[in-house]
Write a protein that binds this DNA or RNA. Sequence first.
DNA 1: CCGCCAAACTGGAACGAGTCAAGTTTCGCG
DNA 2: CGCGAAACTTGACTCGTTCCAGTTTGGCGG
Lengths: 155, 155
Amino acid sequence: MSTTTAYERQVREAGLRVTRPRVAVLAAVHEHPHLDTEEILGLARADLGAVSHQAVYDVLRALTTAGLLRRIEPEGSPARYETRVGDNHHHLVCRSCGTIVDVDCTVGAAPCLTASDDHGFVIDEAEVVFWGLCPTCQAAHASTTSRPHGGNTRV
Amino acid sequence: MSTTTAYERQVREAGLRVTRPRVAVLAAVHEHPHLDTEEILGLARADLGAVSHQAVYDVLRALTTAGLLRRIEPEGSPARYETRVGDNHHHLVCRSCGTIVDVDCTVGAAPCLTASDDHGFVIDEAEVVFWGLCPTCQAAHASTTSRPHGGNTRV
DNA sequence: CCGCCAAACTGGAACGAGTCAAGTTTCGCG
DNA sequence: CGCGAAACTTGACTCGTTCCAGTTTGGCGG
């Protein structure tokens, strides 16, 4: 087993120092996408024994600005991170349990990308979030409540 | 001038009691879309003289769940509200100053709505956020920095 | 191979947005 | 016009995140 993992290399190539917390965090996020900061902290601690709260926040920010991580932040949820960067993919979030899964935007070229009127803005990214119920929660809700959510279902 | 404004009617028709804070908040949001809670609180106070922090939070939640308001929450920003509900429109956010403007999604029927693979989810909404630079900030940045943001521009 | 210094980490305090809880006021139906 | 539920007030508190001051450490120049 090489101690010089691909993660170390990635960190180094991003122009950042290679430190244990950084590698641990990068590995954790890579293996478990969409975790929030606290969960990442947990994994990092399991890996290293002890890391400070702060170190993880610093590392996440450093890796994010270096482009190794992408930060996502669905409404009502703390920040989450993933290693899929630079590819065109979006997210599907369960309204009930908060589970997030990746989805690729099929429709050929980025659809809905060109706003009807850009108001003079220079648009550099279109972010899409799909809201719904995951299979598990569908089952759970079907048996208990009939309809948990109100109208406003238009898209 | 009728004291029984359209706002009052709206509140009543939503099955909610008509109270001063509610009408004031609804009016404020209607006249100034995309304000955050604190700004709404300010307007409500200007209107009523005194309202508690809590009342505004309660009212915003009540009106939101009643479907009179829509809550939006761009990353890194506190919650904001608008009265355009039920129509298919999205938002354009300036990375630099945070300004938000509404955009209608041209492309006929909701595009990008169908994820390539829905993972078994029942999708009820697709939310689109366009990120970019508003005209004002473009000018400002052009004179100071050449390029404020990194890569990850794909969509 | 050593020492230096910026970058990275530690611990703890602070902050802003939002929520909770207990008690008082007020809307509006009967 | 009176009563009960809904709405409001005050104030404490939680949670995620950031700030700060001081210590440690990676890795390059000597």
